[in-house]
Amino acid sequence: MNGIPMELGLLLSAVLFVLGLIGVMVRRNLIMILMSLEVMLNATGLAFIVAGSRWGQADGQIMFLLILTLAAAEVGVGLGLALQIFHRFHTLDADSVNEMHG
């Protein structure tokens, strides 16, 4: 055993997740929001890897793989949307695109 405690790995994962969360909630630039989302996804992946490493199972890595796929698809669509929004509104401000409100 290499001596890395599991709770430290999970703690790091939580820190990264919360940082990404703050990014999503605070930033108004769509690109930055997407990037913060990547951080959050990555943090989740880290938690899976830590757990997989704790139990010596392949499932953790497979979950990470799936998250990776999800992230790739999400970035593709999200950036497409960002381009589209910029094209229509000439801004990347997420708050100014609030036409659909109740």
Binding site: V24, M25, I33, A94, D95, V97, N98, M100, H101, G102
Partner: peptide, 15 residues
């Protein structure tokens, strides 16, 4: 009440 929650702001939804 609920309709006033629908601000159309992504950040508000995330919060």
């Amino acid at each position: 009440l609920f309709s006033s929650l629908q601000t159309g702001r992504v950040r508000w939804y995330a919060s």
